[in-house]
Design a binder for these strands. Structure first.
Length: 441
RNA sequence: GUGGUCGUAGUUCAGUUGGUAGAACGCCUCGUUGUGGUCGAGGAGGUCGCGGGUUCAACCCCCGUCGAUCACCCCA
């Protein structure tokens, strides 16, 4: 092998693709900050007991080990974080005394999971996460708010249509309790597989694993089939004839989320009673988001309410949050060419060079443009002008600047138009100042 | 981690019953002695993923290995 091969599950982007990713991340950052979320950055590693608590032993965590450590004592007890919620919960406990509650933060960082990769599923990937935690009690309106923040953040991005499916664990678990099913956690996990394995297999599993009767299993399937873009699901659930206080609590909370979302972001949120979520730290509202045309990727933005994830025994910090799978969304779109940038460099203007002696003069001209925020670079050499234009063209740089004793001229190399300008007054069209994202037809 | 498919120029791919490789696009030079894109002419670039085996001879057949990809699992 003369050339290194790519590493499975560790996607790396080309400059043009990275520009798209940067623009998306910048957009998310601005959106989150508009909603008052503070940024946080946590370390890459967490103690293994933090990562593996809550019984998530099946999770493939990358463990840290010192190369020179002797084999016996090689375990550092540290692992790379697999999401941003668990590190955040740890951070909140560690810094509880210095934080003001309710505390809202966003975090955009890579995460690592040692699973076998495939499209939209990587071993190193970027997540954009928002959470709100409070001390002791977390008001239910935050479960509405985080969904609306995500709706707002995704709204103006050039991405396929997103739909957020929302459920409430209290609703499902209350329903199962009302039916008389004991192991409601396991029942949830089985229902979560409905899309994948179908109703017959789910019935079979419910009967075998949680000792449900066929009638109980059928009631569970009827509940899972309910979906609505408005609060009409409440009556549909009641029509199934199950009564339980937890169920009512869940119905009320879910209705509030759906109702508020319908007003602010119509069509974005739908109530969907088959959403369960694999992670068992969720205790209330749960969210999953699918991207139109890319349903096989699964959820591209998920989360939920967790009441007991952050607890030091004395105080609990219940929270609710959502994570956007930035890599999961972007890498497939970039690889298929559905998304691209208008150019592969930030440069807006290339200053042409008539001969090498003029480089100093050219540097001064470039600096005058940069001073006014126009990304500029000077030609790498005083090659023929045709070559210098080609240099710009290959990179997508829209403008080439020519200067001599007679004056300064700017050429738009896309149209070929060349005009005399005042270098201290000229501005490119707003859409040309920085690269932008373009979508394929 | 379990199973299926696939690895040939920078890229997308051809390659005949086994006789040591080709196209298109891209790239470079020139036509075009200082304004690119079109056109024309020329050129560079490959230990055929890696290692072993069979054979007079392997890109081709066999084994192993590494990588990619899909499904399961899990999930962003």
């Amino acid at each position: 092998m003369s050339r290194p091969q790519p590493l499975s599950g560790f996607p790396e982007l080309l400059p043009r693709q990275r520009i798209v990713e940067q623009q998306v991340v910048d957009h998310l950052r601005r959106a989150f900050e508009l909603h008052g979320f503070a940024n946080l950055q946590t370390r890459a590693v967490e103690p293994m007991d933090q990562l593996l608590r809550k019984g998530e032993t099946s999770k493939e965590v990358y463990v840290l080990r010192r190369l020179q450590a002797d084999v016996e004592g090689s375990d550092s007890g540290l692992g790379l974080h697999f999401d941003l919620t668990v590190p955040f919960a740890r951070y909140v406990l560690e810094n509880a005394g210095k934080l003001n509650f309710p505390f809202r933060r966003y975090q955009i960082q890579p995460c690592w999971r040692g699973e076998r990769p495939q499209e939209g599923r990587y071993r190193e990937f970027m997540q954009a996460d928002i959470d709100i935690v409070d001390l002791g009690e977390l008001p239910a309106h935050y479960e509405v708010e985080v969904a609306l923040v995500i709706a707002d953040a995704l709204k103006d991005l050039p991405l396929p249509k997103m739909t957020m499916h929302v459920n409430n664990r209290k609703l499902s678990q209350g329903f199962y309790q009302g039916l008389g099913i004991r192991d409601t956690d396991e029942a949830l996990r089985i229902i979560d597989k409905l899309d994948k394995i179908g109703p017959d297999a789910v019935t079979k599993l419910l009967v075998e694993e949680v000792d449900a009767t066929v009638e109980q299993a059928e009631a569970c399937l009827k509940l899972a089939a309910i979906t609505a873009a408005d609060t009409s699901f409440v009556d549909e659930v009641h029509a199934l004839g199950v009564t339980n206080p937890l169920l009512e609590e869940g119905l009320t909370e879910l209705a509030a989320v759906v109702d508020a979302a319908a007003k602010v972001a119509p069509g974005f949120v739908v109530a969907d009673m088959k959403i369960a979520r694999g992670l068992d730290y969720y205790t209330g509202t749960v969210y999953e988001t699918v991207m139109e045309g890319y349903e096989s990727l699964g959820s591209v933005c998920s989360g939920g309410r967790y009441d007991k994830l952050a607890s030091d025994g004395k105080n609990t910090y219940p929270g609710v949050g959502l994570s956007i799978g930035v890599s999961r969304i972007l890498v497939p779109l970039l690889n298929s060419g559905a998304l691209n940038a208008t150019r592969e460099v930030p440069t807006c203007v290339l200053v042409a060079l008539a001969n090498e002696d003029e480089r100093t003069t050219a540097n001064v001209l470039a600096q005058r443009l940069r001073k006014r925020g126009i990304p500029t670079q000077v030609s790498p050499s005083a090659a023929k002008f045709g070559k210098q234009i080609k240099f710009a063209d290959k990179r997508g740089i829209p403008f080439v600047l020519f200067a001599n004793e007679e004056g300064t001229q700017i050429k738009d190399i896309r149209s070929g138009d060349q005009t005399t300008i005042d270098i201290d007054a000229w501005n490119p069209p707003a859409e040309d100042l920085h690269p932008t994202i373009v979508t394929a037809e």
